[in-house]
């Protein structure tokens, strides 16, 4: 009888969805991790006061997983937030391909950075705007914030009027980039 060692090693990539930074790990038997060919071991402990702590390489960081769905994870580690998705080499290349496709028709969606009231809208649909041009004024916590665009293009959609109250992340204006 030949004894063949089972090869149960996968390549998995943790992709930072905000910065696109990639961390490639090789995973054996689902719990042995290697990064840059070095084995790496983490321990997750809940301490007496209920704080979750990740310890690795002698460092200890309090953490919290604030959201997870399918292969995406929102993590707060040491007070800093990270959004990661776990990808296989195949799913990552598919993701890249889709992103490249989407990049052709580039648009900017202006969302409300915080809940507040729209005081003034300076642009209308169809208007062309330059980089850094003021779009609208949002009042939040009694401060007036002027929101500007980060690209040159045409306003394709304006969903708000002065006086409207908006929630965080509500879409306010959409701009299509100049080709």
């Amino acid at each position: 009888m030949t004894t063949k060692k089972p090869s149960n090693t996968n390549k998995l990539i943790a992709l930072n969805s905000d910065t696109n930074a990639e961390y490639e790990f090789s995973v054996r038997n689902n719990y042995e991790y290697r990064y840059n060919r070095c084995p790496i071991r983490i321990d997750l402990v809940q301490e007496a006061d209920g704080v979750n702590v990740l310890s690795c390489n002698g460092m200890r960081y309090p953490y919290e997983i604030t959201q997870q769905s399918a292969n995406t994870y929102s993590i707060t580690l040491n007070g800093v937030s990270y959004n990661f998705s776990i990808e296989t080499p195949f799913s990552l290349s598919r993701k890249r391909m889709l992103a490249a496709k989407a990049g052709i028709s580039k648009k900017e969606v202006i969302k409300a950075p915080m809940p507040g009231k729209i005081l003034d809208v300076f642009v209308a649909e169809g208007q062309t705007v330059g980089n850094g041009e003021s779009l609208l004024v949002l009042e939040a916590m009694k401060m007036q914030n002027t929101i500007a665009t980060h690209m040159k293009g045409t306003v394709t959609k304006v969903t708000v009027v002065p006086g409207k109250t908006v929630g965080k992340d509500d879409v306010l204006i959409e701009i299509k980039a100049e080709q």
Binding site: A14, N30, I40, I42
Partner: peptide
């Protein structure tokens, strides 16, 4: 705007990986 320890992002990546691999088991 935020301070990160040198390998903090790697740790976060590892944590996500840990969750992923342990959920499917």
């Amino acid at each position: 705007l935020v301070y990160r320890e040198p390998d903090e992002e790697l740790m976060a990546a590892l944590l996500a990986l840990y969750q992923y691999t342990h959920e499917t088991v």
